[in-house]
């Protein structure tokens, strides 16, 4: 009889990113998530038009390039 209890996951490593978006020109910058980041938080200056950016998304991506 096969065991019905699954073994511990071989977890796919998730990398978490913060996306900063410039409200003026729409440029999006992706950087690694830092503790304290949240959506709508003020971000760094836009590299294109030097307006202040805001964090628009925080999300995780699988570290495998193929996604899953």
């Amino acid at each position: 009889m096969m065991s019905s209890v699954p073994g511990p996951d071989k977890k796919t490593k998730l990398l978490v990113y913060t996306i900063e978006e410039c409200p003026a020109c729409g440029q999006k910058t992706k950087r690694a998530f830092a503790v304290g980041d949240y959506v709508t938080k003020d971000g760094a200056q836009c590299t294109k038009c030097s307006s202040p950016t805001k964090v628009s998304l925080v999300y995780a991506e699988s570290s495998k390039p193929s996604g899953q």
């Binding site: 998730l14 978490v16 998304l57 925080v58 999300y59 995780a60 991506e61």
Partner: peptide, 12 residues
């Protein structure tokens, strides 16, 4: 209940 996946965030 875990960190938001890219597919979900991009649905926004």
């Amino acid at each position: 209940i875990t960190v938001m996946r890219k597919e979900i965030a991009e649905a926004a």
